[in-house]
Amino acid sequence: MIRRDPAIASREARRDLAAGAFSVGLAACLAAVHFRQAGRLHDDYGAEPGPALLPEILLAALALIGLALLLRGFWIGRIAGLASREQKEIGSAFGRASLVVLGLLVAAMFLQSATGFGIAAATASALLAILLARQELRSLPRAAIEGVLVAAILYALFRFILGVPLT
């Protein structure tokens, strides 16, 4: 994994650290849920190992993989240095545009519970088209109309031709 290029090495180190921290954290949270679950989960099922075994193996594996990634990240990072200025954006996993789009999708879902799927989809679609048109330096009002049209066509296809209850 170690490349000679220090910029790449430090990027890989940061990736390892992020992935490792995520795995260890997730394993810890899920383990808390798993071991505190009441009911029949931790019963003895005789010859059969029972429903608790596989999650436990997987949580242990996840934690171990996470630790290994952390160690490797520290190790490479120590050699190559973590802060390489030209690559600072990788510190956060998300770039700006994608974060905005993701937020838009989530917002559309909340809107959906109030207004129904059709209006939420049309709104999100118009905003998405505007966002993309801005990147492409094109007319925004036109993009909004295009977005609504796309939503209307797809909605009609699913709702009326396939009979999917998108309400």
Binding site: A121, S125, A129, L132, R138, E146, G147, F158, L162, P165
Partner: peptide, 28 residues
């Protein structure tokens, strides 16, 4: 055009996920 295609893809993803079990939770 890219803006229409990407918008359409994202909407298709949402509607497609819903269609699997008619469940809004699948969209989440």
């Amino acid at each position: 055009p890219r803006r229409i295609l990407l918008t359409g893809i994202l909407l298709l993803c949402l509607m497609g996920a819903f269609s699997v079990r008619n469940s809004i939770y699948d969209v989440w």
